[in-house]
Design a protein around this nucleic acid. Structure first.
Lengths: 142, 142
DNA sequence: TTGTAATAATTGATATATCAATTAAATTTT
DNA sequence: AAAATTTAATTGATATATCAATTATTACAA
């Protein structure tokens, strides 16, 4: 146990890092000029069109500051537009452009392939147990 | 399966991120002025006194560039010293100072507590399965 | 209603991640 | 031995992470 409790965090860290590099590489290979994080942010906005940046940061587990900067880049890239909410001028209304919608749609297939490749040889039962363990860690660290 | 294969990466990412924040907070609370990554680097050098920066980067899953910069900071902080290897002037010899050794020793207890708290309520069997799953993901993404 | 507190987003500072390019030194090839 | 290749480390550029501080706005409370 002592040994494994040491190694488990090492492997959690390693696996997600490798998966991200793997996924990012596949995106690049398919000609998509977008990072995994940027893709996730656009996806969340599409699925929650009235979301605020603060809510968004909770949804994607990122700091407010990170979200502000990712959004800046997405606007620069033409995937997103921003407008002050007239109902509450502290808030911003985020709007995914057509280009933004298109890239999400096109990237989706690659994301599914990535997940499937990364989970190759893992059965449903083990996956469920792994998920349970991760959820417990999350609860313990909150 | 479709749903879980979506969520599993989300939870891997979330769990390691929360654990790192949790661990970092504990270090701060105990008055240690060091980041998790810096701690890991010093620890690896102590355990492998003749290691090169390149080997180190593989050991801690970091880019050469990141390692160079982390080492710069550790030297600035007085935890590490660096000297060109006369046998091969491309290489650097890394030496942990007494201050560096001391902080590793003192931090160790906190790290053990962190791991133990984060794994609370998880039994040996589930942990082993989770580890197996992570290893498979790692192998698949390599 | 005016002052205070809370909320949303931004900005600054510093650390790390990633890729590409560069420098310096050692090794291999011709 | 000179040229080409490889290796080790650094540096530059850009993206993200984290914490702290700030600004603008709204909500609340005395």
């Amino acid at each position: 146990m002592e040994k494994l409790s040491n190694i488990i965090f090492y492997n959690i860290d390693y696996s997600i890092r490798l998966y991200r590099m793997f996924a990012q590489k596949k995106l690049r290979e398919n000609g998509f000029k977008i990072t995994i994080d940027q893709w996730l942010v656009i996806k969340c906005i599409l699925e929650n069109p009235t979301i605020t940046q603060h809510e968004l940061s909770e949804l994607v587990f990122k700091d407010n500051a990170s979200v502000t900067r990712i959004i800046d880049l997405l606007i620069k890239a033409g995937y997103l537009e921003k407008e002050t909410n007239p109902e509450d001028r502290r808030k911003q209304m985020l709007h995914v452009t057509e280009t933004g919608e298109a890239i999400i749609k096109n990237v989706h297939e690659v994301v599914l392939q990535n997940r499937s490749k990364a989970l190759n040889g893992i059965n449903q039962e083990e996956l469920e147990i792994a998920d349970t363990v991760l959820r417990k860690i999350i609860a313990n660290c909150k």
